[in-house]
Simulated assay, not measured.
Amino acid sequence: MQGTDRRGLMLILSSPSGAGKTTLARHILKVDQHIHTSISVTTRKKRPNEIDGVHYYFTDHANFKQMIRNGEFLEYAEIFGELYGTPRKFVDQELLKGEDVLFDIDWQGNRQISAIAKEDVVSVFIFPPSKQELFNRLVKRAQDDESTIQNRMDKADDELSHWHEYDYSIINRDLVESLNKLLAILRAERLKKARRLGVTEFVQSLLTEKIDYIKVNK
C-alpha cells in the first residue's frame, strides 16, 4: 500500500561511561529486527573479549587519519587519547533501505551527526540513577584499572552537561523499564509523518477514490 514505506532513522544513545547505554543498545538490537548497529572504527587496543569487525574495526592512528582525509566518516572524535569514528557508507545504505541505525556514541558524535543530518536523527541521553551507582557499575564490570575508572568519573560531569542537546532522556534505574521507554521512543519516531514516504500520494488516492455504493447496499 502506498504511504507505508519510510526512510530509516539514526538512533543515538549517549551517556557517561557505565550508565548503561551499551547494555540497552545490545538489548534493543535483540528485540527489533529493523535496527542495526553502526560498527565504529577505533585506534584503541582490542580487549580480550572483542572481535574485529563485530565490536569495532580496529586500526592505527595513521590509517584512521587517512580515512578522515578521504571523508569516510560520518563523525569522529578523540576519547581518552584514542580515535573513534562512524563509517558513512553503511549508514547511508541502511537509511535508504528504510532500516534504522543505532549509535553508541558520546555528545561530540551526536553534535556532529545532528549538524549534518538532523532530520534523520533521534537522540537519547541515558542518565545513571546517581554518581555513586555510576562508580559502582564501573567497578563491578571490571574492565578498567583504578586510574581509568577515575578518568571516566572525571569525564562524567562533562558528559552530563550536554544532556540538553538530546531529544529525549531516560534515567536508567531499571533495565527493563528503560528498554521499554526506549522502544516506545523508537516506535513513535518511526511513525512521524516526515519519515513516511509516499504519504502525500496515498492521501491523494483516498481523496479521489470512488466508492461503489451499490456494492455495499447489496
Rank of each mutant, 00 (worst) to 15 (best):
L13S: 07
L96D: 09
N136H: 13
K140N: 14
L183Y: 08
N217W: 09
L186Q: 07
H27L: 15
P48I: 08
D145R: 02
R173C: 11
S205K: 12
V124A: 09
D106H: 08
N180S: 11
H27A: 07
N136P: 01
A156P: 06
L207A: 14
I39V: 11
L95R: 00
L96R: 10
K155I: 03
K193E: 12
L186S: 02
I171S: 07
I105N: 02
L183P: 03
L186H: 05
S178Y: 15
F80T: 02
L134G: 10
S147G: 13
I211V: 15
S178V: 12
G53C: 03
I170M: 14
E159C: 13
K65F: 11
N172K: 12
A19P: 14
W163R: 10
V121M: 03
E119K: 07
A142V: 00
G71Y: 08
Q132P: 00
Y56G: 01
H55R: 01
S178C: 14
E209T: 07
D145T: 09
G85P: 09
I39H: 00
N70T: 11
T37H: 02
K193Y: 08
Y76K: 04
E165Y: 13
F202C: 07
V121Y: 02
P129L: 09
R152M: 00
R195H: 15
V124Y: 05
K89C: 02
T23L: 14
F103I: 00
I170R: 12
A156V: 07
P16Q: 05
I214E: 10
R196P: 04
L182C: 14
Q108R: 13
Q132M: 06
Y56D: 01
H55S: 07
F202R: 13
L74Q: 01
E189R: 15
Y76E: 08
N70Y: 13
T23E: 11
L13Q: 04
T42R: 07
I51G: 00
K215C: 05
F58A: 06
P48N: 06
I116Q: 15
I35M: 01
L138Q: 10
K215D: 09
V199F: 15
A77T: 11
G85A: 09
A184I: 06
D120Y: 05
L138Y: 08
T42G: 11
F58M: 09
M153G: 05
K155R: 10
L83C: 14
Q93D: 03
N180Y: 03
L9E: 01
G198E: 04
D144K: 09
Y166I: 14
L138I: 06
H162F: 15
Q33I: 03
T23R: 07
F80E: 11
I126W: 07
F103Y: 03
A188S: 13
E94H: 01
G109P: 02
F64P: 12
L74T: 04
L11W: 03
F58S: 10
N180D: 14
K218P: 02
A184G: 13
W107L: 02
A117W: 05
Q66Y: 11
S147A: 12
E72W: 04
T200K: 12
R173N: 15
S205H: 06
G109D: 04
D92M: 04
A62G: 06
I185L: 10
L29C: 03
E99I: 00
D158F: 11
